[in-house]
Every structure is written in structure tokens, then in C-alpha cells.
């Protein structure tokens, strides 16, 4: 019994010291971590809608209205869709003429060297200036398609296109942007 109390006591002290030192580190690092998350979002929004100065969050974490002073220039969306290796997070802007301003892949877990190339400008730059309701891969729609898929990564490319289309569809139906189904 005495032994038992000693063991519990030592474990308790170990845990207490660990927890104490960790809470100190947490206090120190909390600010920079939160600051980076905030900065990163603003940078991403600016990157896909460079002409806008302010962004007003319309729907938490998924939709912003882009402003230059008082004039609304368009909207920015953040959406998540199922890729080949996991969720693909996409941020993109649409101006008032319903044209895509730019697309940026925020995070993904696609295959390095294949699907991961959807995050490179060679793929994402194709979207700029395209009508938001006309997006389609040439591979899926030879007649009306206007986007080249990444070689060897059709599923990842499709996911990116589908994510954008679904986010827009949802916003027009008044539903919050959500992960798209497979069609």
C-alpha cells in the first residue's frame, strides 16, 4: 500500500511538472500561432482577389465579399472537396461579371509529383478569367471543356474543378458551401 502511494505520487508530480511547463510554452506561442493563421487567410484572400482592399466575411470561414472602399467587386470562397488522397482546400474569387479572378489550393494531401501539381500555377492559372458557370475539363467534356487536367492526375484535377463548381452552386442555393458529392 505504501509503495502504491509512492508510485502514484511520483507519477502525479511528473504529470504536474509536464503540464506546468507546457502551459508556459503554450502561453508564449499562442499569439504567434493565432497571428499566423489570421495573416495567412488575409494573404490568401488577397492573392485570389488582388484588386480588393477589404474583405467582409459573409459566411463564417467559407465566403467573403470583396470590397474596394464602398464598391463591391465580387466574392471570395473557401471550400473543401474530396481529392484523391484526402481533402483539398481551395480558395478562389469571382468578380461581378461571374468570372473567376484566381484560384489557389490552400492545402491538400495528393500524391507528390502527380496530384500535388494541382497546387502549381501551371494548373491553377488556367482558371483566371473563365466564366464561373463554364468550367469543365477538356478530358471530361471535349466540346465545351476549357481546362487541361494535370497529366496523370485526373482525379485530383476533377476534384479542384468540382470543388469550385459546388461552392458556387451552394452559394446560389443559399446553402453554406460544403464538400461536394462525386458528381
Amino acid at each position: 500500500m505504501k509503495d502504491f502511494i509512492k508510485l502514484v505520487g511520483i507519477l502525479f508530480i511528473t504529470g504536474a511538472i509536464a503540464a506546468g511547463s507546457l502551459s508556459a510554452v503554450y502561453q508564449l506561442t499562442r499569439e504567434p500561432i493565432a497571428e499566423f493563421a489570421k495573416q495567412e487567410k488575409i494573404v490568401a484572400l488577397k492573392e485570389v482577389f488582388s484588386s480588393a482592399k477589404d474583405f467582409k466575411e459573409v459566411r463564417t470561414e467559407t465566403m467573403w465579399e470583396a470590397y474596394d472602399g464602398q464598391t463591391q467587386l465580387g466574392r471570395v470562397f473557401l471550400t473543401e472537396t474530396a481529392g484523391y488522397g484526402g481533402p483539398v482546400k481551395i480558395v478562389f474569387g469571382v468578380n461581378l461579371q461571374n468570372e473567376i479572378t484566381a484560384v489557389k489550393i490552400l492545402s491538400h494531401t495528393e500524391t507528390p509529383g502527380l496530384g500535388a501539381k494541382i497546387a502549381l500555377p501551371a494548373f491553377t492559372a488556367q482558371f483566371a478569367g473563365k466564366k464561373a458557370d463554364s468550367l469543365a475539363l477538356k478530358k471530361d467534356n471535349p466540346a465545351a471543356g476549357n481546362l487541361d487536367a494535370v497529366t496523370g492526375a485526373t482525379i485530383s484535377s476533377r476534384a479542384a474543378v468540382r470543388g469550385i463548381i459546388n461552392a458556387l452552386k451552394d452559394s446560389n442555393n443559399g446553402n453554406p458551401a460544403r464538400e461536394g458529392s462525386s458528381k
Partner: peptide, 13 residues
């Protein structure tokens, strides 16, 4: 795990 969490938080920050 205490040291790992310290370095994890520091790298995040």
C-alpha cells in the same frame, strides 16, 4: 512528450 509538445508549438509559432 513534454519536449515534443514544446518543439511542436514552437515550430507552429
Amino acid at each position: 512528450s513534454t519536449f515534443v509538445t514544446i518543439i511542436d508549438l514552437s515550430i507552429q509559432a
